[in-house]
Design a binder for these strands. Structure first.
Lengths: 241, 241
DNA sequence: ACGGAGATGTCATAAATATTTCATGTCCGT
DNA sequence: ACGGACATGAAATATTTATGACATCTCCGT
């Protein structure tokens, strides 16, 4: 049998789309399929988002009020740090002609809407496979996380995680020792307005622990009562009475 | 007369809410969690407040008599000096659809009410993370408190505390040497309307001491007879008032 | 369309820890 | 020595977490 088909997080997509309904649809659809999704209603918001965050790919609506997709793309191509960000356009079929111009301006491809989630997914996958930047391998104690392969190892042994647990660990490893409240985790893993029972976090933490801690190994997840959880190596013995 | 009880504020929040009960609830809840809170009953008042003061984030009710939250937000976005003020909406679940439009008008997010204080807190924290620096490590004598990691050490050794003792020490470390009466402590750790035996404080102080003071170490908690307790290094003169 | 595999979100329940209250013993200042 | 204020240990409660089992759902190959 072949090792891990690992259907984990597949990349961070920024969706820039002015029409609320479609935006929501795209967000849901992509999130459903395991992408981390950020959305912006217009080019301006998108740019300010890109100031602080670097997604793996941007999905731009072609026609937008204000800064159009084309302009946004051009702007992106001018920013030194963003030059390599893959850009995919969403266009109406009638605009297909114009898009040729878009490709000249640095886009990496386009899709005509409406388009199936499958098609979009396939396109993104292809794009990400080709252009996803090489990210540094993160380590913490015996843990190693290779963003590129979505591969995690503990003391050399591969660790299999589901998508959610992967993102959880990823967040932890980017912020070692930091305590995240359950609310924080909900916010950062599920998004701002997703309603999920707060205790569901416990379950994912348990799954993460189970996968991470082999027999006899120390628990790398620290429970901070009344506060949350953190990735931590040395647990001291309790001193309280 | 009474010196201002002061711990480091986590940020300045402007709450704009027309319903008095909810407004008060929000104000208390946020204040309790360490935010500096300003309130306004309507959009007009809010704007005039913003003429002179610049909070870190605005929390707007969606439906309000007079200037609605949406209009207020739009107005804010038009004022040069306020353009960057993060705006968060409070909406009823039934209004959720409309809010998508709100996001197009410059909001940074929304919360559906009723929503737990925890959730609100998490949301605010996420917003403020962008504009406010990470919390600093506090030290006092041999003590170190890292809010980020929920970690306390004395002379390098980790100190394990329960939730209440942690908050107690946190308060003390924000106000070194200051004497807190038991009533003060009850008010600030338990909240305004909680009935707990006043002597319970003693028990928590004892546990804090026990955890803090290893064998042979000096007691860092000073008992001020008939007055309360304070965090204090052992060398302070016993001269009392 | 059908069935299996993998993921997720929820619960109910067991386990672990914390918090409060008490009953008593100590210490302090007068 | 006395009265009031503190310190302490232990028991009774209350809260918070950890777990195992499920019911759904989505994805995929047939």
């Amino acid at each position: 049998m072949t090792p891990p088909p690992q259907a984990a997080t597949r990349g961070h997509v920024l969706v820039v789309e002015d029409e609320p309904a479609l935006r929501l649809l795209l967000e849901r659809s992509l999130h459903q399929r395991g992408y981390q999704v950020s959305v912006a209603p217009d080019g301006k918001k998108a740019l300010s988002f890109l100031e602080t965050t670097r997604p793996d790919v941007a999905l731009l609506d072609w026609m937008m009020p204000g800064l159009s997709g084309l302009e946004l793309c051009r702007t992106i191509r001018q920013k030194p740090g963003l030059r390599d960000l893959p850009v995919l356009f969403l266009t109406a079929r009638t605009e297909e002609q114009d898009v040729i111009a878009g490709l000249d301006n640095g886009a990496d491809g386009y899709l005509t809407k409406p388009c199936s989630a499958d098609r979009l997914d396939a396109r993104l996958r292809a794009l990400l496979r080709r252009t996803r930047p090489v990210q540094d391998i993160i380590t913490f104690g015996p843990l190693t996380l290779e963003p590129e392969n979505h591969q995690i190892t503990r003391s050399g042994r591969p660790v299999m995680l589901g998508p959610t647990e992967y993102r959880l660990l990823e967040l932890f490893m980017h912020n070692p020792r930091r305590v995240f409240s359950r609310e924080d985790l909900l916010e950062r893993l599920w998004g701002p307005n997703v309603h999920v029972e707060i205790r569901t976090i416990d379950v994912h933490i348990r799954r993460l622990r189970k996968a991470l801690n082999g027999a006899g190994e120390t628990d790398l997840i620290r429970t901070v009562r009344a506060a949350g959880y953190a990735l931590d190596d040395g647990h001291a013995s309790p001193a309280a009475g």
